[in-house]
Amino acid sequence: MATPRFRVGDRVRGTTYVPPDLRRQERPEPFEGVVVQIGSGYDKVDAGRAYLWTRLADHTERQSLVEETELVVREGQS
């Protein structure tokens, strides 16, 4: 079994995901934070794309695509 690219608690950075229907109101933005959820949590929703939820320092959360996110620090490492 392959090791997952990210784990809850990892520090990551990337660009927020904005769904196509919201791109007139929102723009993708860079972020850095801690992974709080991997995947949507709903069966088959992530079939086409893998999502990641990250909590920022201001305690808000951002959604990103796994492929557009990079690991900064693995949980438990400094």
Rank of each mutant, 00 (worst) to 15 (best):
E26D: 11
G41A: 11
P19V: 14
Y42K: 13
E61P: 00
A2R: 08
G9F: 02
R11A: 09
T15E: 14
E26I: 08
H59T: 00
V18S: 08
A2E: 06
S78R: 15
Y51T: 07
E32K: 11
D43V: 13
R11V: 08
E26T: 06
E70I: 10
G14A: 01
F6T: 00
Q25G: 04
T16Q: 02
R7E: 01
D46K: 05
K44D: 15
L65P: 05
T54E: 11
R27S: 14
V12R: 04
E29I: 11
V36H: 04
M1G: 09
P4N: 00
R55E: 14
A50T: 15
R23K: 13
W53T: 04
T15H: 12
M1S: 06
E70V: 12
D58G: 07
G48M: 14
R24N: 07
V73H: 08
R24Y: 08
E75P: 00
G14F: 01
T15D: 10
L52E: 05
I38N: 01
E68T: 03
A2Y: 07
V35K: 02
P19F: 07
R7K: 05
L71Q: 04
G9I: 03
A57S: 10
A47H: 07
Q77A: 10
R5Q: 06
P28H: 13
V8E: 02
V36C: 08
Y17P: 03
P20S: 12
Y17L: 07
E32V: 10
R74C: 09
L71D: 03
G39A: 08
K44H: 15
E29K: 14
P19H: 11
V36D: 05
D10W: 01
D21I: 10
D21E: 10
A57G: 04
F31E: 03
T69N: 06
F31G: 02
E32R: 12
E68D: 07
F6R: 00
R11Y: 07
L56D: 10
G48H: 13
A47L: 08
D10Y: 02
A47G: 07
L65R: 05
Q37T: 14
Y51S: 05
Q77K: 09
R74S: 13
V12I: 13
L22A: 15
G14Y: 00
T69Q: 06
V72S: 07
L52W: 09
E67I: 06
D46E: 06
G9D: 05
A57C: 01
V34L: 01
Y17N: 04
Q25V: 08
R27G: 06
